[in-house]
Design a protein around this nucleic acid. Structure first.
Lengths: 363, 363
DNA sequence: ACTTGCAGTCTCGAAGAGAGAGTGCTAGCA
DNA sequence: TGCTAGCACTCTCTCTTCGAGACTGCAAGT
């Protein structure tokens, strides 16, 4: 692509920002007025024609304003946008919330997703921390009733998982403890394959077999995706419409359109979340990510996945390479506030990294 | 309230069913035609006037059909409706799904809510199994890193909870095990108050104190609410509208209106879920329930909670009285399919009861 | 190289009219 | 007395029309 003139850049940037803000096709005149561009609307129109040629923007219909295309957003994200960092207050608030649940691991994912969703008024996704291949470090078995017990397993990567055991014969805590004492040294440091090997090489008791199977099952478990959505209050405000305030006419109109747009976007979002939940998209995401280490932006499915039309993803990995970690990010309309979204996702990934470092790896 | 004549009942029942089905104000003529009533529309109109007098139904505006009021739904649920049991296939499917996660306790709540939401195309709520006051049965501590460990606690009611521990001094598994062996007999069978008492009466080591505090925190934890929502695909189908098929005109019109209604209902639902999540409604629910043992229906907030206007709840307790258990149910528009909803909620409560009996109490 | 001015195009909202849906009432019939 | 048929009336919904206004693209001017 031939590089854009600085004036074209300036105009494109203003246009994208305006559209993200207002969800209304942007007119040349508006750009000049609101962004105090040092040339006339006709000139802007000329440049807009050029940008349209380059497929960076679009006209919904002749004689309407312009709207960025996916490519336009891409250019914006890569060259024009600037990240808007979180305010210190926000950072403090987040830190504080995580401080409160620092000892409840299962809350981390929920909280992270919830924070992202709320800060960005959109939906967030996150996979819980996992490492690729797990190995047993230590486990304990707690008796619950005569015939059931609870297995807790610490992996070498530091993650803890648990599972209910249904025993075949009535077994008390003492016996479970002794089994645990017997098996722990045997399984320590091993992965799925080795444990399977051990099971073949000797004849375990029924209870031991139940335990071993549970361990294998835990090690093989896939990580699932967690969602959080900020439920925006999109309900119409008939009060506002009824009170015939026609003063702010232009603004009101824009407001109205914005409401409708956000409504549509909201529905679209739910569709996509649904599809992601059906696991149709997740594997693609995972395979797309490794390319770089920072925050990745996928705009409108980037012409590759129709399912993601009109929807953008801002994703990041967290955790160290090869160790325990996962994916986290935000799903929003293509017209999301990329600057802020990227900043938030980056920050949350960093927070997760620190939390993980605190609790898991101490090297 | 004076009892309704059987003819009024017949008409009310038909009206409610029709409205639940179509979300369209019901006309006298429609009732006669679709439900083959043995009298004319004029007679029906007369009776409708009576029902309106009794505040069981409503006219959105003069010369529109009738719509049930909350009171009307109430009457329907209590006297006219019949429960529509789950098909054997559905039952089998559900059993199978639970069979697959029978050893993953944390999945039960998720699965139950998800099943209810999906079967009823609405939102489901559920609190995880808890008993009123918890007592320690047994716990174990697993070392994760030098400075962090994992506490797993089995309560006398059979529930298992866990928490991450941040240790002040570097401690290995062996030492944690010996502390656990020392504290277990001391704490066994005790509740929050007694443990606090013990802590006052002697001077524990820093690590012991961390552990005791964690146990107390676990015992004091409130049970949170879990949500699941069936994301209905409400997106308009412009294709259908574009293809100018005007043949099924009446049906098409009803269809259109239904779409809009469902959209509104959907938004309303999200509002209410939001409020419930903010914990504003939950305590009320809990206090409302104990009255009877079966399935409870709360319609449109039953004039008591404005927050719940237009929304109905079908709720049931599960678990045995005083033992481990919780609340589960469905939130939907007032025009939900009560017959089916009640059957589903009842069934799921029963499934949970059986699961709990299997794993927890064996008496 | 820009800008001004202007004709052309398209959308959106208001207004009005007609169709249709549904009611309540009254008169008549068993 | 209980039911029905007929009918005038009301209210909503939809379709159409029409004018205003929002933008554009182009051509002529600075």
């Amino acid at each position: 692509m031939t590089p854009l003139s600085s004036r074209k850049q300036q105009i494109l940037r203003a246009l994208v920002e305006e559209y993200i803000h207002n969800a209304t096709p942007v007119a040349s005149e508006t750009l000049v007025r609101k962004y105090e561009l040092p040339f006339s609307s006709a000139t802007v129109r000329h440049e807009l024609a050029g940008l349209e040629e380059a497929d960076l923007i679009n006209q919904p219909h002749t004689s309407a304003g312009r709207v960025p295309t996916d490519l336009g957003y891409r250019y914006f994200v890569e060259h024009l946008m600037q990240e808007s960092a979180l305010s210190l207050d926000e950072q403090r608030l987040i830190r504080h919330m995580f401080y409160q649940v620092q000892d409840q691991l299962d809350q981390w994912v929920r909280l992270t997703a919830s924070v992202m969703a709320r800060l960005l008024h959109s939906a967030a996704v996150m996979t819980p921390p996992r490492s690729a291949e797990g190995r047993v470090k230590h486990f304990e078995i707690l008796s619950v009733t005569d015939l059931s017990a609870h297995l807790v397993l610490v992996l070498t990567d530091g993650t803890v998982r648990e599972q209910r055991l249904l025993l075949e014969t009535s077994t008390l805590q003492d016996e479970l403890s002794s089994i645990s004492a017997r098996l722990n040294p045997r399984f320590s440091g091993l992965g799925v394959d080795e444990i399977n090997g051990i099971l073949l090489s000797y004849d375990p008791s029924p209870t031991e077999r139940v335990i071993a199977n549970a361990i294998i099952r835990i090690l093989e478990q896939q990580s699932d995706v967690f969602f959080s959505e900020d439920i925006v209050n999109i309900l119409d405000h008939p009060a506002a419409a009824a009170s015939g305030l026609r003063l702010a006419n232009e603004d009101e109109r824009a407001e109205r359109i914005r409401k409708v747009m956000e409504d549509l976007e909201h529905k679209r979002l739910q569709q996509v979340m649904d599809e992601i939940e059906q696991k149709r998209i997740l594997p693609v995401l995972a395979s797309h990510l490794p390319s770089t280490d920072g925050v990745q932006v996928i705009i409108g499915g980037e012409n590759r996945w129709d399912e993601m039309k009109d929807v953008s993803l801002v994703l990041a990995r967290y955790g160290q390479k090869g160790k325990v970690g996962g994916l986290l990010g935000v799903i929003g309309p293509t017209r999301m506030q990329y600057g802020r979204a990227i900043a938030v996702v980056r920050y949350m990934a960093q927070v997760m990294n620190e939390l993980l470092a605190d609790v898991y790896g101490c090297e």
